[in-house]
């Protein structure tokens, strides 16, 4: 009897992973870069399920107990009961606003030591990207290039201040922001939702009151650097804006 439960749980988990991969909803939970790991777990769960069915009469190797089975059922229940969708903006209050991606190579002390020795070859791809961006008349931030471009912007701010820029995001306010300030933010994900952080551009405008929390806007303006207590943060000088519907996949992913 308990062997049927084990088989059902294994196949249930496998079904859940397969469903998420096929519908591409997996990217709401983990960085698509790690999809191959989930494919591995799917295959291995199926193998284990088949082995369990083959040995359905064999006595248990360890006792697991009701609570054990109930707990393993929990993820399946969470999957069935709740629609899979990205975190909504309300979670941002529980997160830490970092303004810029955490993986900024400049800031990593370990890298810095190594890099000092290996002359500046690591900078090449960033420099290349920077000169590419310089040629554009307007820098448009999309979900795909968001973190990469903000990285480059913050590495060579002197090249880009005053440059036209378009970005989409939700309105986010943090304690300590002035009344005429808000952040046009996105949630960045390096591995899974648990490590998501808020990134975005600080916008300083007298119209600030018109932007309601958690609403999505597409904003056009020029890039600028603003100073606040945490240091220099990227900002946009507002030129024009329009309300847009919330993106289906609201994350920006770390590409490494």
């Amino acid at each position: 009897m308990s062997s049927i439960i084990r088989a059902a749980l294994l196949f249930g988990l496998a079904f859940m992973v397969a469903y998420l991969i096929i519908t591409r909803e997996l990217s709401y939970f983990i960085n698509p870069r790690f999809q191959y790991l989930s494919i591995f777990s799917l295959i291995f769960l199926l193998i284990l399920g088949c082995v369990q069915i083959n040995h359905y009469k064999r006595p248990s190797a360890h006792r697991i107990g009701t609570w054990g089975y109930l707990i393993v059922l929990l993820p399946i229940c969470a999957f069935l009961l709740f629609p899979s969708k990205p975190l909504d903006a309300s979670i941002a209050d529980q997160k830490v606003y970092t303004y810029v991606p955490t993986e900024k190579p400049k800031n990593q002390s370990t890298d810095q030591q190594q890099l000092a020795q290996e002359d500046d070859s690591w900078e090449e791809p960033y420099k290349q990207k920077a000169s590419e961006l310089e040629k554009l008349s307007v820098i448009t931030l999309s979900s795909k290039n968001y973190l990469e471009v903000t990285n480059v912007l913050m590495m060579y701010p002197e090249k880009f201040v005053g440059k036209k820029i378009t970005s989409t995001g939700f309105v986010y306010r943090e304690e300590g922001l002035k009344d005429n300030q808000f952040v046009l933010a996105r949630l960045s994900m390096s591995c899974c939702v648990a490590d998501a952080g808020v990134v975005g551009f600080l916008i300083d405008t007298p119209l600030s009151n018109q932007f309601k929390k958690d609403q999505w806007y597409e904003i056009e303006g020029t890039f600028e650097i603003t100073k606040n207590e945490t240091g220099e943060v990227p900002g946009i000088k507002l030129k024009s804006y329009k309300r847009v519907p919330a993106l289906k996949d609201s994350y920006v992913y770390q590409q490494f």
């Binding site: 988990l13 992973v17 998420l20 997996l26 709401y28 939970f29 983990i30 790690f34 790991l37 989930s38 591995f40 777990s41 291995f44 769960l45 993820p75 969470a78 999957f79 009961l81 709740f82 629609p83 899979s84 969708k85 990205p86 975190l87 909504d88 309300s90 979670i91 591995c191 899974c192 939702v193 648990a194």
Partner: peptide, 20 residues
Amino acid sequence: LQNLATIFLSIFLEGLPFIL
């Protein structure tokens, strides 16, 4: 509650292959 379920599933899905 929705966010709770999302974070929970996310941690689970990320850890699952390593446990396996």
